[in-house]
Design a protein around this nucleic acid. Structure first.
Lengths: 339, 339
DNA sequence: CTGCATTTTGGAACCGGTCCCGAAATGCCA
DNA sequence: TGGCATTTCGGGACCGGTTCCAAAATGCAG
């Protein structure tokens, strides 16, 4: 069964192609009689208008592009991105948009960026992390292409964004530890140039200060969101004999690495060392012991991002909006609050 | 800076648009002089031809669509899919194709399927799992749209596929346990209607038989690839007092769930219970203890799938190819072979 | 310098839609 | 029944490329 064109549908329904077009787009001013005939033909032959041809005429593709950072496999393959993609995808489909996927490696693949931004006309872009934003924001601005940032960066106040309350989340995580009588709480944080890291760090410090606990730079180490980095940092500490009783990890992945180091050293969690994470990955319910962490509504972040972007594409929102979603503490066993 | 059209480039370079088109497509029969002028204009204005217009004329979009099954979040968000998508993506980009992402929920969303298959013209489809294949194979066949299946199913011998050696992997995992003197080895398998499950089950049974170990239906339970299912199955066994010393899990996710149940029950792994998984997810290096498992080259599977599909799109392969990738045993600590 | 083969060029049709606009059909009222 | 407003319809230009083909330019041999 060959694919029909609008002209073939028109002649089968004995009308002009303008009429068919009007029926397809729910324009008024088409007689009941004609509409009926056209719909009958469409149904009979299962006709679908070519989205390519339509895009050419309307200059709209109904396609948005997700730009995901290309990190190491270990930092990438933890379910976080799948959930985010899923949220974006489901909302887009619901609103009639297709989703295209790209992963940008950190070395400059200008060729790829050029193609994505200029050659293929996406209606808008979802930028995952400010690393990605940094690389593509200029050309997007120049061509006035709608974009939304998942994450946030004060450097781009004009770009809509959706983020989780990183400061508040870290604050609540560490406050929780302090309330459990931990006076010295170490931290494994992420790349210091990320805004996210700065906010989580600030939350951590503020919570310590508010609790009257010790604040000490020496208790902070920098990882890269991989399990390996969490593992190695914790192992380094254990070798030197840690002088603290709890660790706040800026991601569950790093917490998972830390848990293994503790396990190998025979240090019991939470008795000898309390651990809390950040993100609440699906797997974190199943670590040994299950991880106390800050729940990020990852899937919802995706949905919000898609909604904001599409509103912008369709011209409903003129000004940039900055959504900030709640990050709640999920108490499980790695912190010692539950038997 | 407005986007130029081919006509504007042509007049800036003082040639007709046919010449510009020829330059863009590396056709012969364009004078050095003209080519030079055209390239200069293209470079100066950073011109990119519109892929939409080109697609309309050539009937090729250079876009392939990944169809991912929409499972529960827990079974979805474990890094497996990200790695697979990444493999597909990187190979596609390298060969000049865009990647579109779709997740099909199991309840019939015919509307979505129709749109994906008919309205938007993808050059080809990557079907992740035979569940997905089952739902879309018919219309794809009918319209002769290239597709490749990741996984495999004897019901579709005419559809190219790439899979891992499920039988061999399971066989090696269980043989390993038998060699460690386990005589009774339980199994947590996946959905029985999946070909994958059938193959892994067969490998498990064969290994037991070859080792002269006990083969007993009662030692087999069915999970759904979620951590939760692994957890609950193991917990059920522990409550009844297990009469076996090792478990083969058909996925790492289920193994991770099982590890937690064992941890909670105070059963030491591997001393009291040996555990092996299947997949070798990035996180499996960091479970407590690290998981012995069968390594699936997930990323490579994605690359193979993309390559096979694009070969087919570009007409290089006429016949269906069925790739079968090695699945190797990775010995870590959960099986007791390593100190 | 001529004549023919070959290279290079530009015009035009085409891909499959949208949308503007003038013409035809219809409705309504006097 | 005629006249005017309104609804419906169809023709054609357009979106930005590709590709076929005939015409123009060039190259080469005699």
């Amino acid at each position: 069964m060959e694919k029909l064109t609008i002209d073939q549908v028109a002649s089968l329904a004995c009308v002009s192609r303008s009429v068919v077009s009007r029926v397809l787009n729910n324009h008024p001013n088409v007689s009941e009689e004609a509409r009926r005939r056209v719909l009958a033909v469409i149904k009979k032959y299962n006709y679908r208008p070519s989205s390519v041809a339509r895009s050419l005429a309307t200059r709209r593709t109904y396609e948005i592009c997700i730009l995901t950072p290309r990190r190491g496999n270990e930092a990438l393959a933890n379910g976080f991105w799948t959930l985010l993609h899923l949220g974006i995808f489901e909302q887009c489909i619901q609103r009639g948009y297709y989703v295209s996927l790209s992963m940008l490696s950190s070395d400059a693949e200008e060729e790829l960026e050029d193609r994505l931004l200029h050659e293929h006309s996406f209606d808008g872009f979802v930028l995952l992390t400010s690393e990605v934003a940094e690389r593509v924001i200029e050309p997007l601005r120049e061509r006035q292409i709608p974009a939304v940032l998942v994450g946030h960066d004060p450097a781009y106040p004009d770009v809509s964004s959706v983020d989780v309350d990183n400061f508040g989340g870290a604050y609540r995580a560490v406050r929780h530890l302090c309330r459990l009588r931990h006076r010295r709480v170490a931290a494994i944080l992420g790349h210091p140039e990320l805004q996210e890291t700065r906010d989580r760090r600030a939350g951590y410090l503020q919570a310590l200060q508010d609790a009257g606990a010790e604040v000490q730079e020496a208790l902070i180490e920098i990882g890269d969101y991989s399990q390996r980095s969490g593992y190695e940092i914790m192992r380094g500490w254990l070798e030197r004999g840690p002088d603290f009783s709890a660790v706040f990890c800026a991601s569950d992945t790093m917490a998972i690495g830390a848990l293994l180091a503790l396990y190998e050293a025979g240090a019991r969690v939470p008795d000898q060392m309390a651990v809390v994470g950040f993100d609440d990955l699906p797997v974190s319910q199943y670590t040994c012991p299950p991880l106390t962490t800050i729940h990020q509504p990852i899937y919802e972040k995706g949905r919000w991002a898609a909604n904001i972007l599409i509103d912008q594409i369709e011209g409903r929102k003129r000004l940039a909006v900055h959504a900030n979603l709640q990050a709640e503490l999920v108490v499980r066993r790695s912190c010692g609050a539950q038997a």
